[in-house]
């Protein structure tokens, strides 16, 4: 008869979560794109800068949205990796290693991303705002660009 091992219960949660989080992620992803590409902060000067991000993320509300986006995207994606593991890795030992790795990745990147959002500090006074200039014109020699770049970085 059938080997019992393959018939471990479970699996319904991943299926359910993929659909629910997928639904939520559509909305969050559209908002994310609107914010990082189409907000006036960005479109007025063409570049997304630290200040543009801070304008929004200094509010706890937006921080909460960002955190839930992080958690949902990470959980959704890594559960997808779990699904693939269940599909393709059949050796018990190998499977345990793979599942363990996914958990470690989930914790490492979950904590790392949350810390980034939670510990955001506004610009030090005197260093804002940050005007953005379009680098225009005909091809510039690489050195010249390099020099410009240097100034920009050292600037204040």
């Amino acid at each position: 008869m059938l080997r019992e091992k393959g018939f471990e219960p479970g699996g319904q949660f991943i299926w359910f979560f993929h659909r629910v989080s997928g639904f939520a992620l559509v909305i969050l992803l559209i908002l994310h794109f609107a914010w990082v590409h189409f907000s006036t902060d960005v479109t007025s000067d063409g570049l997304l800068t630290f200040n543009d991000v801070m304008n929004r993320l200094s509010s706890p509300f937006f921080k909460a949205i960002d955190l839930s986006f992080l958690v949902l995207a990470l959980a959704h994606g890594l559960m997808g990796v779990m699904l693939s593991i269940q599909d393709y890795i059949k050796r018990q030992g190998l499977r345990m290693i793979a599942v363990g790795t996914v958990w470690i990745l989930a914790i490492v990147f979950g904590v790392w991303g949350s810390v980034t959002i939670l510990t955001l500090k506004p610009h030090e006074p005197g260093t804002t705002p940050e005007p953005v200039r379009k680098v225009t014109g005909v091809p510039q020699p690489a050195e010249e660009n390099q020099a410009l770049w240097q100034i920009v970085e050292d600037g204040q």
Partner: peptide, 9 residues
């Protein structure tokens, strides 16, 4: 880069 940021300006 096609844009640059001038810090402190």
């Amino acid at each position: 880069p096609s844009y640059e940021v001038i810090h402190g300006g």
